[in-house]
């Protein structure tokens, strides 16, 4: 009987091992950080995973042993293996209460430290001023305003590498969650309120970002691309945009706020001159203009061929 159990145990030990190999082997976005914020979150994740695997192994092994050893139809069961009135043991109960408390403490301390660190710009770029970008969600698109540069983009943005970005998050209408998995965790953008989120890219590249919080029919399509590039290239892009892109007029901005899907766009002025949706004064700017726009749906669906979303009006 003992011989039966050994291969089973070995196989069990392989599960978490294979799991960690699998996790490190494939490039899941969250576990493939491109900046210090995502990196610190990944480190904390991996730290917690050790505890979780520990718990899982202990429980699974204990469970396997109990079910196997104390099944009624096991051959050659001995009578002393059945104690129907066994109902408590103070020592062991204290042990299995204290150990979880220790684990929770061990998890809480780095969680709290990381939480406070995430409120500040990353230390690795402390020598530089963060770049300020206003990220505003509107059904179902993103506006990125660079107040210092006086430019605005829709559904894409450029950021310099090795420099903290200070995102000012808000929304013109429904609540959205601003998320770039490879750069760091998300935060909500809400009308009439402003949230600050620090992110930073250390590796140049293109990263996917999206609204992660369901906010209506166009939610799936509310995505954007982040171009992270060295400071000089970023400066060139800013300059080109300032010189070549058209100015954003209030009429055009107001019509862009209407619930819809739009392409990427670039402007050489920002909407912040008329409204900042993150302030209490700006919270109903969009809804009083487009209150009736939600009566009709956009009929968003997949269509054959390339392009995975189409607006079929």
């Amino acid at each position: 009987m003992n011989q039966q159990r050994h291969p089973f145990k070995k196989w069990l030990a392989l599960v978490p091992l294979g799991f960690i190999v699998f996790l490190s082997g494939c490039e899941l976005a969250v576990l493939d950080p491109a900046g210090p914020v995502a990196q610190s979150q990944k480190d904390l994740m991996i730290y917690s995973l050790y505890f979780m695997f520990g718990i899982i192994i202990v429980v699974f092994v204990a469970f396997g042993v109990m079910v196997f050893k104390y099944r009624d139809n096991k051959p050659n069961r001995k009578d002393e293996d059945y104690k129907p009135n066994l109902h408590g043991n103070t020592l062991i109960e204290v042990v299995w209460t204290v150990i979880p408390i220790i684990i929770v403490t061990a998890l809480s301390i780095p969680t709290v430290t990381t939480l406070f660190e995430l409120e500040k710009p990353p230390e690795s770029s402390a020598d530089k001023e963060p770049l300020v970008v206003y990220a505003t969600s509107a059904d179902w698109k993103w506006f990125f305003s660079y107040p210092e540069q006086g430019i605005e983009t829709v559904n894409y943005l450029h950021i310099p590498t090795d420099r903290a970005i200070e995102f000012h998050l808000s929304s013109a209408d429904s609540m959205a969650s601003f998320w770039i998995p490879r750069l760091g965790g998300q935060k909500y953008g809400m009308a009439g309120m402003e949230n600050i989120l620090y992110l930073q890219a250390d590796v140049p590249g293109t990263y996917n970002g999206r609204n992660a919080n369901f906010n209506g029919e166009g939610f799936t399509a509310q995505t954007f691309e982040v171009q992270a590039q060295p400071q000089e290239q970023f400066d060139t892009w800013v300059q080109e945009t300032q010189e070549q892109a058209p100015e954003l007029t209030q009429d055009e901005y107001d019509s862009l706020l209407k619930p819809s899907l739009v392409e990427e766009m670039t402007f050489s002025s920002t909407h912040l001159q008329w409204v900042d949706h993150g302030t209490n004064a700006g919270r109903d700017y969009s809804i009083i203009r487009h209150r009736n726009a939600y009566d009709e749906t956009l009929h968003i669906e997949n269509v054959p061929g390339p392009g995975w979303i189409s607006e079929n009006e």
Binding site: S40, L115, W179
Partner: peptide, 13 residues
């Protein structure tokens, strides 16, 4: 893991 707020930012939604 979800209860650890700092990493929840990556798991949420």
């Amino acid at each position: 893991m979800l209860g650890m707020a700092a990493t929840d930012y990556q798991y949420h939604n």
